[in-house]
Simulated scan of single mutants.
Amino acid sequence: MTTPSSPALPRTSPPLTVTVIIPAHNEEAGLPATLRSIKSQSVPPDKIIVVDDGSTDHTGAVAASYGVTVLRPPGNLGSKAKAQNHALPHCDTDLILAVDADTVLAPDYIEQLKPAFDDPAVQVAAGNVQTRFARTPWERGRSTEYLFGFHWHRPIQQLADSPMVCSGCCSMFRRTALEESGGFPERTIVEDMDFTWSQQAAGRRAVYVSDAVAWAADPETLTYLRKQVWRWMAGFMQNVRLHLPRLLTRKPMLATWVIVALLEILAAPLWWAAPVLLTTAYHEPVPRTLGWWAGAELFLTIPALLYAARRRRLPITQVLLNLPFVYLNKAVNLYYAWKALLVELILVPLRLSRGLVIYEKGR
């Protein structure tokens, strides 16, 4: 007599483990909110490491008061990537979540991001970044940039399986991919874009998860905005120089986004000068040409902002009132984009400049 055998239960993999790395240099003011957001996650991390990178304030003591692991290099390491790499040997989890010391995560950030790594091809993922504060003109302009970029550009890039960057303030990495790559990239001034592009060029995946939300503290003054935008633009051009030839053959869709971004930088001065050029060439009244130009700008911008406001449950009036300030930021962006193009794509290959090699904080 035989008894029927029980059906085999499906094998389940153990849950992926997570270490959070927070590089911090003089971040005693912003660090508590960051740590509170991490310690209150619906899916808590297995380990939290703060790298007190040469701070001259109470960053280390603040971090220790939250019961996290605090690492103190002998001296300031000089960049975020180097501080993150200082912590990497202390990590033995499946995933590494790199969080800036002034970024606050939504309570379900880790819960939203982890499922992306059920696909073994995914090596890096990040969520939707919004501004924590909108007090100064520069912060208000940045809030508009983020609303537009993370609800228009980034979803389109994700649909094409080729996001331009997984934001370094809140990106999650597969630890084995980092170790195989030699850690967080230090060869460019923006490690997040470097890793995002190199992994996709190698046939692996980067993912944007729109439902995972983080709030970053952005530059509140022009001085810090200039430093941050110069670093971002120089880093973008460094990655163009380093990766674009390979992307053209290995990841043509990502190469397409890169080329479009370069063309936008080249064409931007012509677009900004269009009202003057049209008035001069066709003798049109200035109010008419300005009206045409402003109408085109609003047509290309407002629908995405209205969608973003609804998605983020933000007051539409406030979103629209912040819109004029984005043009202050755009002027700064354009200046440093052209400077970076000249320095990193022309002067550096000609050995007339070393390019940007010193990491400066943006706030």
Rank of each mutant, 00 (worst) to 15 (best):
P4M: 14
S6W: 08
S6L: 11
P7H: 02
R11W: 14
P15F: 01
E27M: 09
T34G: 05
S40L: 10
V43T: 14
V43P: 08
K47Y: 07
S55H: 02
S55C: 04
Y66V: 06
G78H: 07
Q84N: 15
N85S: 09
L95N: 01
L95C: 02
A101F: 06
P107C: 12
D108T: 12
Y109I: 12
E111M: 10
P115E: 02
Q123K: 12
Q123A: 14
F133I: 08
T136G: 08
S143N: 09
I156E: 06
I156H: 05
C166E: 06
C170M: 04
S171K: 03
T176K: 05
E180L: 11
E180G: 04
G182I: 00
P185E: 01
F195I: 00
A206D: 06
A212F: 08
A217Y: 07
P219E: 06
H243K: 13
T249A: 14
M253S: 10
L254R: 04
E264D: 15
I265N: 10
P275Y: 00
V276S: 08
V286W: 10
W293N: 14
G295M: 13
T301K: 04
V319E: 02
P324T: 00
Y327R: 06
A331N: 01
W338K: 02
V348W: 04
R351Q: 15
R351K: 15
L356R: 10
I358V: 13
G362L: 08
